[in-house]
Structures are given as structure tokens and as C-alpha cells.
Write a protein that binds this DNA or RNA. Sequence first.
DNA 1: CGGGCTGTTGACTC
DNA 2: AGAGTCAACAGCCC
Length: 268
Amino acid sequence: MPELPEITCRSAEMKKELTGKMISEIEVIQPKSLNISENEFKSALVGAEILDVYPRGKWIITNTSQGWLLINLGMGGELLHTQTSQKPEKRRLSLEFDDNSSLCINFWWFGYAHFIPISALNSHAMTAKLGPNALEMSPDQLQFLLKGKRGALKTFMLDQSKIAGIGNAYIHDILWFAYLHPLRVIDSLDNEDIARLFQAIKDGLLPSIKKGGAFYEVNLYGEKGGFSMEDIFIGYKEGKDCPRCGTTIEKIKTGSTSSFICPSCQKY
DNA sequence: CGGGCTGTTGACTC
DNA sequence: AGAGTCAACAGCCC
């Protein structure tokens, strides 16, 4: 479940390791994850030099001398930088570079690797419609985004077209930090609620970025992230005590997803 | 061994 | 606009 912290870390690692390298060959094992045919994809990117890599919500955007490579790991996956002679068995796609290293992409379930030509990045609908990156909003911007909305707060927070980068792993602690229930209706939020929510997004995401992402994901070198269960306050801790008030943490159904809440700190 | 759960996104419906 | 459902089909847990 790669969310903003993991995507931020992977992008930084890719930028560090891959900038300046040239793609010499591409191997496609799962053509379904591409937005164009396998042959088109290969001829578009073979020969390209990596210029820059940066995060955009849950997407990793790579700028090359021949166009854009956009990667979304979907519900989980690995990006590994290895020697081309030592590629991992499990991979759906790999980019081989001119220095005999490779970037191997594995999706656990499914994911996307899309190519977009130079000067056409805004034609990519899935990234063009994303809201602001969760950590690059101002408090005013968050207030503006919430204004006039009626649904449940959690649905809004996970809607990538509203705010980009938050998923179902980090949302539990974010809402708990803000003392807000996932099913709280948006138009009942006052300025103080929104101010707490703004700070809670930072408190929920920044510690994981500092630790290299969540423990259940690995970095480009195959090492697990340092953000562990002990760094999580209430997410996935059903039956344990709320670290703030001692009330038993509950797991509840919120639409199609589950939520972990402290029923005392987070009143509906 | 098998069934349930998990997590993202788009497409689609009402 | 928002809520609901489905499809894409791996791996872990019990």
C-alpha cells in the first residue's frame, strides 16, 4: 500500500540512483499495465536519459529526454535497483540501463507504467486531475477544498482528486490526531477542526518519510522501511488502548473500507 | 486446503 | 456531487 511517504522516498531514491543513466533495453512481462502497446512503449523509451524523478500523489513521475514515464504501484509493489545480471524473479517490467544496472518493477496485484510524450504531461488524465499533494497545501487551500462539500470526511481525504497522496493505511492516525471521526460530515467541520486536520496530515505523514517509509514496503535497495507498528498510534490496533485516553480502539466499517478509531477521542 | 481480507483506481450506475 | 458496486486476481492468515 504505497502512499505518499513511500512514493516520496522511492522518488528520491530513483532520482539519486538513476539521473544521468540511459535506458538501453526494456523488458515487459505484463503489457496490461502499459497505456500503449509493448512495442510503442519500448521504442518510446529505449535510448532515453533519465533527467528527473519526483512524486505526485501516489504516482512517481520520471522525466526523460524522450518523454515521461509515470508509475503507480496500485495496491503494493516493489521498485528494485539491481545489477542487470541479478534481477529479482518477481517483476512485471524492467528498465535496463547503460551501466548494466536495472530498475525492476513488480506490482503485487496490478499497477500502471504509462508513457506520455514530451510537452504532453497534462494529457495524462489520471495525474492531471489529482488535487494538491497532501504536504504541499496551505491551510487556506484545505479550507477551500472542503468548502461546500457534503459527504463523509474519510471519503474526501482518500479522494485523490481532492487531496493527493493519502491512502487507507495512514488515514486512521491522521483522523485520530485531528480528533475527527471518519464518517463525520464535512459541512459540520468548524475552523478549529480544519486547523487540527491540517496539522494532523503533517503529523501523520512526515514521521514515515523521515524513516524511509512503512515497514511493509522495501526501498530501491530491498531494505524495509523504518516506520513500524510502534510508530502507528491506532491504525490496525483493534482491541488495544488508545494511547491518549485508554479507551479500547475499535475497528468499524466505513463504506467499503475499514477504519480504526478511538470512540472516545473521535466522536461522530 | 480454502475462504476471507486487504488496498488503488476507473468505469459505471443511480 | 456523492454513494454504491464491480473488476483488475497476489499473498497472508487462520
